[in-house]
Amino acid sequence: MESNRTSPAPPPAVPSGGSRGLAGPTSARAKRSFLRELPEPDVFVVTSGGRRIPAHTGILASVSPVLENLIYRPSKRRSSEKIVPILGVPCNAVSAFVEFVYSSRCTEEEMEKYDVHLLALAHVYSVPQLKQRCVESLRQRLTVDSVVDLLQLSRLCSSPELELRCMKLVHHQFKAVEQTEGWRFLQHHDPWLELDILHFIDESESRKKRTKRQRDDQKLYLQLSEAMDCLEHICTEGCTTVGPHDADPATARKEPCGKFATCQGLQTLIRHFAACGKRVSGGCGGCKSVWRLLRLHAAVCDQPNSCKVPLCRQLKLRSQREKRKDGARWRLLARKVALAKAMSSLSQAMMRRRRPEEVLDMFSRSSRARGGTRSFKLGK
């Protein structure tokens, strides 16, 4: 009978072999040499099928603290033969487990057949190297049909890496997962896990929307920052057809600047703003855009007495005198615009792989631009 059969001893570990062991004829000779130096096996690993695998207590105890406790715990039996039962998994999986304990190796064929059982054994007997190997194997062969079963297993075996991978696959292919037998079994027998999956999907979608909204806001802040730069540039130096209000238009800069697309659109709005008859009562949509840009510039500018941007000093004095309730909102918007520009400059500098001192200098100059650092206190 199978219960009386004794399988050959597994190959022992070679101390210098590493996690993958040695390869080739040298490895085989080293194993045979090390095997001859080992004492006789003093413990038997017994499987569910009755197979008895001879082993050595010192090796088992050195690899697994759980096996160490099982080997050296007091026994009520008077027999001198030590037995370690490993039940509930196929005999060949137990043999592969003992093989790994000795040699820190496991063939691809064994891993493909028994990775689920080996993961359970690695978790129960605290063998982290084997557990990591099994998790990597299961991640590579994860499918829609097996994802629910592996998700349950990852929770039982405390493998957050595999659990997260399973959750992401369920999220990306939820409609296909819903049609599997594993999902139907989950709905009837583990509603708490189903709730956790739905909660994860909801959180992922919310995070995706939040990230998109933040990206859109960042893009808007960068556009506002560029428009403010162009406004100050037009009102100070002049560009193509529009120049400073206290200078002759003929002396305005005729050649296009580096931000010509933004400057051209802003010049069109400025010419419309100067000629529009509705601007006194709030104006049309174009006039309102110019008013907002002027208001934002006034909130940022720290030299209103010498600033050449129209209405800068008047808008700042009016805001201080009337203590408008929306002043805090404008200051917050100005701070976000300055921060977005600074972070964009820092990101571009890092992508160009500049030296750290150059990146910090650029960030400092961007923060001081238009009084961005001196005008606002982020801590309050």
Rank of each mutant, 00 (worst) to 15 (best):
E237N: 08
C276V: 02
W291E: 15
V290W: 00
C287P: 03
G238Q: 00
A252C: 08
C257D: 08
L294T: 00
K308R: 15
A298C: 11
E237M: 05
K278D: 14
A247T: 13
T241Y: 01
Q314G: 10
D246E: 12
H297F: 11
K259N: 15
R292D: 14
Q267H: 05
A247F: 09
T251D: 13
L224P: 12
A298E: 06
C312F: 01
Q223Y: 05
T240K: 09
H297T: 03
R295A: 10
K316C: 08
L231S: 06
P249C: 02
A298D: 09
G283E: 09
G282D: 05
G265V: 08
P256D: 12
F273A: 12
V290S: 02
T241F: 02
L224R: 12
K308D: 07
G243I: 00
E226R: 10
G238D: 00
N305C: 13
F273T: 04
G258C: 14
S225V: 09
C263M: 07
C263Q: 07
L311V: 01
L269Q: 05
I234A: 01
L311T: 01
C263S: 13
S225F: 07
L294N: 01
L231A: 06
L311A: 05
F260R: 04
G286D: 11
G282I: 04
